[in-house]
Design a protein around this nucleic acid. Sequence first.
DNA 1: CTCAGAATTAAGATATTCTTAAGAATTTGA
DNA 2: TCAAATTCTTAAGAATATCTTAATTCTGAG
Lengths: 232, 232
Amino acid sequence: MAANILVVDDEQSIADLIEVYLKNENYDVFKFYNGRDALQCVENHNIDLAILDIMLPDIDGFSICQQIREKYNFPVIMLTAKEEEIDKITGLTLGADDYITKPFRPLELIARVKAQLRRFTKYNFLEPKQDEHLIAFSGLVLDKDTHECTLNEKNLSLTPTEFSILWVLCSNRGRVVSSEDLFHEVWGDKYFTNNNNTVMVHIRHLREKMHDSAENPKYIKTVWGVGYKIEK
Amino acid sequence: MAANILVVDDEQSIADLIEVYLKNENYDVFKFYNGRDALQCVENHNIDLAILDIMLPDIDGFSICQQIREKYNFPVIMLTAKEEEIDKITGLTLGADDYITKPFRPLELIARVKAQLRRFTKYNFLEPKQDEHLIAFSGLVLDKDTHECTLNEKNLSLTPTEFSILWVLCSNRGRVVSSEDLFHEVWGDKYFTNNNNTVMVHIRHLREKMHDSAENPKYIKTVWGVGYKIEK
DNA sequence: CTCAGAATTAAGATATTCTTAAGAATTTGA
DNA sequence: TCAAATTCTTAAGAATATCTTAATTCTGAG
């Protein structure tokens, strides 16, 4: 999943650094050292996410953010120096979706970028419907209240993690969910690691309890190179 | 699900910031820069949740929280500066349902607001009908008037706390109640700590008096990683 | 045929719950 | 009011369920 990311920082070394990290993750990077050029770029390219330093020579990141917000709808992450007054940071990040304090850890930057992109794309993720407590289709019933899952009236006695995974898969029925996305949905965005082997093992357990198999799946289907999916 | 949210912070930029985020999620925001106006607002509007800065020019957030608690029953989230000593924070947020340290991440703020609203509406749901004084099913009878509990005509002579716990479990029969929710239902929202060991020990005593066991429960069933439940 | 992605397996690590008991807090009754 | 009885809370270790890791085998796409 490629994405166009705008990076604006007057400190060239930092902008370059960020560019390296992002390109390493196969993102397309549009890098600028001042606000004016950046704003022009936004006009001419389909930007999916912006990372803005607050301190810039011409227009500050705060203003850029506001101008972006007037016309566009992609997530904005602000870069702030750690020394800044807490209250000042809070004020300056007005309108942004997230902020990162310098110095930042590369993995954290990437994680936050991914989290924001995830938020703005795909899936029903952030809770399908507000008060959806029950998912039921073709013999499978998931009940969030009782935390029970039954298949053809038989209780599968899932563990909490298993239940969560199946819930995400079911609430995105017909759609492929990557193991990475599954991981972040179930474990949260706090982890920078992306251990899809863990997900895999849980999928295995799920299939076992559902008397399902990998080679001839009745429920959880493997989509090679993409993720897992439950048919609609 | 719209909700009326009270926001109080003397720093206008921060209050405005919070307002933006909340309105973006379709909440109705009642914003004030001092405590006096805020308290008056509470009198005149059906507030569903309050976000209070601790430092305020006239009345501090801590006091506002206490005054709210005396007459109303909606969740309160406190805003604190990060530098504050942990112990001080714990003290100052006493009586609040949650707290957020500045600077906060927009997603986190929204997540916490949603969590509290969810929790609260769930509680209202948990609380059965106001004039329900008796619960009786399969040999078990709970009488709120006499505070007596009999199992197959035999009085179990429960302590007040034990009775409360069993009452909550019974009035939510078929649903898993987390130990955290149980704690707040029985002990009230005033405690910040959430010692589920206390709940656990009482559950143990309950099971003992009911001649029930953990490994093969007839009444109170443990749902791993989730909570306790009495079958419907 | 080759190889990266996926599945399987089992054991080691972690987390949650249970049990027990002691001491603190509260209530009761003289 | 004070002492005794009851009830509540805390703590620590044991038992058990769950999760993660790692090593190996298997499979499907090109």
